[in-house]
């Protein structure tokens, strides 16, 4: 892969270009109107075009530069584990309640670090469950189901 595809400026520029174009292309369907009576699409259209131009400038500068500024490595393990932990929490909260969701989310989040020790993690999970039930549900009174509803 040529180094330009891993250049920070180039990638950021492409990202901006894509987001800008996405918003700009969608904007006319909301009605642009005139400057005097703006439609819902007026402001997003301008912003989308501005963002796309910024993205273009950023990418162009990267292409013209002699030395690419390579993006540092992405670590997949923490990203995947933390995302999985939150998704597990969300999935279980509706279906099994706060207690099980917290236990599961903590155990899954343990996968994110190489230093995790299993027994320690179990203790943290139990402790956190107790704390969040007492603090958030009992003390602050947030409307969160503790267990599954039958």
């Amino acid at each position: 892969m040529p180094a330009i595809f891993r250049d920070k400026d180039f990638l950021a520029g492409c990202l901006f270009l894509a987001i800008g174009l996405f918003f700009a292309v969608e904007a006319p369907s909301y009605g642009i109107g005139t400057a005097r009576r703006m439609g819902a699409g007026y402001f997003p259209l301008i912003l989308g075009i501005v963002l796309a131009l910024i993205g273009l400038a950023l990418s162009a500068r990267a292409v013209l530069q002699s030395q690419p500024d390579v993006m540092p490595r992405l670590f997949i393990r923490p990203v995947a584990a933390i995302t999985a932990s939150i998704v597990a929490f969300g999935f279980l909260l509706d279906r099994a309640g706060l207690v099980i969701a917290t236990l599961a989310a903590v155990l899954v989040s343990g996968l994110a670090s190489e230093e995790t020790r299993f027994f320690e993690l179990v203790l943290v999970a139990i402790g956190l469950t107790v704390v969040s039930v007492l603090l958030f549900v009992q003390f602050l009174g947030l409307p969160i189901p503790l267990w599954w509803r039958l």
């Binding site: 939150i86 969300g90 917290t102 320690e120 943290v124 704390v131 969160i144």
Partner: peptide, 30 residues
């Protein structure tokens, strides 16, 4: 740090959930 981050995650989850009591925001946050 391995003992610090699980509580942060749980706090974030419960906080985001209670913004509008919906799990949609949790997935959005992820």
């Amino acid at each position: 740090y391995r003992l610090f981050y699980p509580p942060i995650i749980i706090f974030l989850c419960i906080g985001v959930f209670s913004v509008s009591n919906s799990t949609f925001n949790l997935y959005l946050m992820a």
